[in-house]
Simulated assay, not measured.
Amino acid sequence: MGQNKNIRILDIGCGTGRHSIELAKRGYSVTGIDLSESMLKRSKEKAEKEKVDVDFQKADARNLSFREEFDLAIMLCEGGFSLMETDEMNYQILQNASKSLKKNGKLIFTTLNALFPLYHSVKDFIESQKQDGNTNCEESSFDLMTFREHNITSLEDDSGNKMELHCNERYYVPSEITWLLKSLNFKTIDIYGAKLGPSTGKINSQQTILKCL
């Protein structure tokens, strides 16, 4: 974006505000949306602590009211896209991200890379990434027919409440993503591979980073 501080940025699926707050600290105007009231509460507390102004709103990424308002939309660390139960709902998120952008606006997002399970075991990968903390993946399986990973994750929140999440995440191959974005009239689509952490440039890595214009 050329470090243009006059642009407006939309953070879709902002969670507790990690990216929104960092961008605001760098002088950008940011709106962060999420469906979770508890995450938005935490994001507002963090923004207040950091003394930055971010417009956090509760909203469903599948049904946004924004129309040609933002110069850049971001969905990082699967901020919504690829986490839905159906392909149709995932596509709705891309549609709404596209509608929110001004002419010549840009979209940057990450999605899980379906080429990764063709070369690696998703279950083994998750096991190898385990770290000390309050989350644990109990079960994991990957369906090559649907490109969906099903897993059960147990976690403990900051208040000590234990819960179990049944997750269903869609992986996408680059050709699928390219077709979906072209159907939304994006003209330039750049795809990068990245593992958890620094970008590696390898197409068979765990995540796919996309920059769309």
Rank of each mutant, 00 (worst) to 15 (best):
K187E: 13
K49F: 09
L112P: 11
F81W: 09
K202M: 14
E50Y: 11
D55C: 11
I93M: 09
E164V: 15
F116G: 06
D157E: 00
T153D: 11
Q57L: 14
F116C: 01
Y91T: 05
I33A: 08
N4S: 08
E68Y: 09
L155Y: 15
F116L: 04
M75D: 10
E37T: 14
M163G: 13
G197Y: 03
V52T: 04
V122A: 01
M1R: 06
I12G: 06
C77L: 15
N204K: 02
S65M: 09
R42T: 15
S128M: 02
T110M: 02
C14E: 10
V30R: 03
T208H: 02
D87W: 00
M39V: 09
S141T: 12
T208G: 02
L118W: 05
D11L: 02
L101H: 02
F66N: 07
F66Q: 08
R148S: 03
P198D: 12
L144P: 05
G27A: 00
H120A: 04
G193F: 07
L115M: 06
D124V: 10
L112N: 07
S140E: 14
T200L: 11
K130V: 10
S159C: 12
L118A: 06
L118N: 07
E78G: 01
S140R: 12
N161F: 13
E127F: 11
I21W: 00
S121W: 03
I177T: 07
K162Y: 10
M75I: 08
K46G: 01
D11K: 07
G27S: 04
T146E: 06
V122C: 05
L23D: 03
G15V: 09
F125I: 08
M89E: 15
L112Q: 07
E78D: 10
L107W: 09
E69L: 10
I209V: 09
G27V: 05
N113D: 00
E85H: 10
L144N: 06
S20A: 12
Y171A: 00
